[in-house]
């Protein structure tokens, strides 16, 4: 019995020790674990133009311009974190989920003129899931505009059925 108790404390001590070691390591390397930089970070300390960085943020509503240079589509849009905005230039086809107000991660480097040249754009969707009818009803009722950010408090819409939302859409 005594040996079991000793083994129990030994295991607890090892778990505590290992846990704190892991916590310290992770907090020390926290900035390296971040997948992307925010536009305000990029503005404050612009990375070297030959360094590949990932820039993450929300696509600013009304900033998207699509041009065509011969065969390749060129997309120009601003990405913001609410404090600063960086203009991104991307040649190629954007992912399906790309839209104004969507979060994106752009992989590329800073150009000398302060814009960001992306070689790849990834769409980062949020954790809200709802049927199309509910999303349309929320937009029609004026509670939410996807161009300007996330939907309202989930409790206000997650019990809505598509029948409810159709009715709500008709009364507006």
């Amino acid at each position: 019995m005594k040996r079991k108790t000793r083994r129990l404390w030994l295991v607890i001590a090892c778990v505590v020790g290992l846990g704190s070691a892991a916590a310290l390591t992770l907090s020390a390397f926290s900035s390296n674990i971040q997948l992307f930089m925010a536009p305000s970070q990029v503005k404050a300390q612009p990375p070297a133009t030959d360094r590949t960085v990932r820039l993450g943020g929300m696509v600013v509503a009304g900033s998207v311009r699509r041009e065509r240079h011969g065969e390749t589509p060129v997309n120009i849009f601003d990405v913001t974190d609410g404090q600063a905005a960086v203009t991104v230039r991307f040649e190629g086809i954007l992912p399906d989920l790309f839209r104004e107000g969507q979060s994106v991660v752009a992989v590329g480097s800073m150009a000398p003129d302060g814009t960001f040249t992306a070689s790849e754009v990834l769409a980062k969707h949020d954790e809200t899931y709802m049927p199309k009818e509910v999303a349309e009803a929320l937009q029609k009722s004026g509670k939410w505009d996807p161009k300007f950010g996330p939907p309202p408090n989930a409790a206000s819409w997650n019990a809505m059925t598509s029948k409810d939302s159709k009715a709500a859409g008709q009364t507006r």
Partner: peptide, 25 residues
């Protein structure tokens, strides 16, 4: 929650209403 990731945060949490329509939940 600790770091920024491409993966979205959890929809179902202990603290808040699930950010998912009940028809999917």
């Amino acid at each position: 929650q600790w770091w920024n990731t491409l993966h979205q945060p959890d929809s179902i949490t202990l603290t808040g209403a699930p950010t998912m329509s009940h028809s999917m939940l």
